[in-house]
């Protein structure tokens, strides 16, 4: 297995693990961490598949950099909302029934 394919498979494993954690957990910090793991898996998959057997691909790198910026921004917003929700309600999970 070439290096790129190895990274791609690790990426698939991380995304699956992250997806599983995101769906199973209720605690909001855990869900946020799961989202970040899933995101890292996606980025690894993107770079791994693009670099498979070819020279290093600048486009894939640029895409992943943009993706990381987006993920950091989303995580920051989620943390702000989470802290506010915790202060208002004293809960770290969402009310399940609407």
């Amino acid at each position: 297995m070439s290096g790129g394919a190895w990274y791609a498979w690790v990426g698939v494993a991380l995304s699956t693990l992250g997806f599983f954690g995101f769906v199973v957990h209720r605690h909001l910090v855990r869900r946020l961490l799961a989202f970040n793991i899933m995101g890292s898996g996606c980025f690894l998959l993107l770079v791994g598949l693009a670099g498979d057997g070819r020279a290093i691909d600048p486009v894939a790198q640029a895409l992943v950099l943009t993706g990381i910026v987006v993920a950091v921004a989303s995580t920051a917003l989620a943390l702000v909302l989470l802290r506010r929700w915790y202060r208002v309600s004293g809960e770290s999970v969402l009310p399940e029934d609407v």
Binding site: S15, F35, S74, W85, S89
Partner: peptide, 26 residues
């Protein structure tokens, strides 16, 4: 706030699934 948080989680999950598709197509 709870609605916004739930919306954010769904939106994040949705866009990651979309991004996975983008990676595969690339």
């Amino acid at each position: 706030l709870a609605a916004a948080m739930r919306y954010l989680l769904v939106a994040l999950l949705g866009s990651l699934l979309y991004l996975l598709g983008v990676a595969l197509i690339y």
